[in-house]
Nucleic acid binder design. Structure first.
Lengths: 212, 212
DNA sequence: GATAAGTTTGACCAATCGGTCAATTCTTCT
DNA sequence: AGAAGAATTGACCGATTGGTCAAACTTATC
């Protein structure tokens, strides 16, 4: 999180403060976006003086980049759960399940991503054009193979992935809207599991050949 | 847009400036959210001095509320395209189609909504808990009727609507991400129509009984 | 226990924020 | 033409912004 060059064992005190700042920054950036966030608010949520924040992270942008990099790493972890060796239904179910769990466990990360895209992706633009595009291309190849083998209905793989991303991300980014429609309470674990199962079922039914 | 009490015919000059401010505000709020937006930037995009902006809209919040109200009206228009008298497949296809067209024609409105939800919906919270919830409940009744009649597979209507909202909204909010994955260019009209057709096909296939 | 290094903090800075205001210009009406 | 009102604008205000800094305080090392 801090300098990757640190050689000496980090003191727990330092790690604690740095982590508190990091988590506070995540929540503030997720809520207000980069421009709408203030270092004062982040320091307040981290319960430290603002000047102390600048000791660990020299600028707001450096802090934002650290937070963003972490989000990308989490994304890459979930991406690996799409297994080409498995059956289409297995692979899709596992991937959607992983993305849904990600949305549930780390909605803040998803919201940071959403805010970054909304303002034109100045920081993760490179990632989108390189790593993400490579990932997408390789999975498109797999999906096309499945289609040719008759294991999937004919479709443009890209738009199918967009549907998966949209739906899973929705459960993180629009948690507030869902809560408002749920009597003001966030989805319970049971509700979330039901939603997840239904999303997987609907998507699979939507792309698997009849009688599968 | 201005005072609804205006009785005299509005001069086109006044309407023009007010509209310019309104459109500039939409684009800025969509990009940076409420907190991240500045009246200076809005005035700059409207190509007027900042003081002139405050002549038409006394505060940043008043301007934001005007913009937000307009977004809700657009939402309500699209909502009416869900026709209960039609076949499930017709009704769903028409609704998804309308939402997709909305995302294409007015991505900015969608992004304003998304930003508002991300910061906890302080302005449209009431709308969500009343109008939107009522709409959702009434449509859930219709969907449940279809399920009982065997015209739809068993599912929780709510999560199905979330899928529709998620997917259609994604084409507006994540336009930038899609463009990055599309050689830097936004989806062409042909690409968008293909995506729309596929979204409708996958969703229908996902919820209609086999052999329909 | 002294010295050095790392950490914490209030006070402060220039720039930008939302908003005001008086002076000016443009329109409208007679 | 000229008065009255509407619209436009540069200058300005106090509050907040991201960031700095020197002084004070801890902690590790000998």
């Amino acid at each position: 999180m801090a300098s990757e060059l640190t050689r000496t064992p980090r003191s727990t005190a330092r790690e604690g403060r740095e982590k508190a700042i990091f988590e506070a920054a995540r929540s503030v950036f997720a809520e207000f976006g980069y421009k709408g966030s203030t270092t004062a608010e982040i320091a307040k949520r981290a319960e430290i003086p603002k000047a102390n924040l600048h000791y660990y992270f020299p600028t707001k942008e450096a802090l934002y980049r650290a937070v963003t990099e972490d989000v990308l790493n989490t994304w890459l972890e979930a991406a690996s759960s799409f297994d080409e060796s498995a059956d289409p239904s297995e692979a899709i179910a596992a991937y959607v399940s992983a993305k849904m769990d990600m949305a549930r466990q780390d909605p803040i990360g998803s919201r940071i991503w959403a805010n970054e895209i909304l303002r034109g992706a100045p920081v993760i633009g490179d990632f989108l054009e390189t790593t993400l595009l490579d990932w997408l291309k390789s999975r498109e190849t797999i999906v096309r193979r499945w289609i040719k083998a008759g294991k999937l209905v004919a479709l443009e793989p890209r738009y199918f992935f967009y549907m998966i991303w949209a739906t899973t991300q929705h459960y993180a980014d629009f948690e507030g809207q869902m809560a408002a429609l749920n009597g003001g309470k966030p989805l319970s674990d049971a509700q979330f599991e039901a939603a997840k199962a239904q999303v997987i079922a609907t998507l699979l039914r939507g792309v698997l050949p009849s009688g599968t």
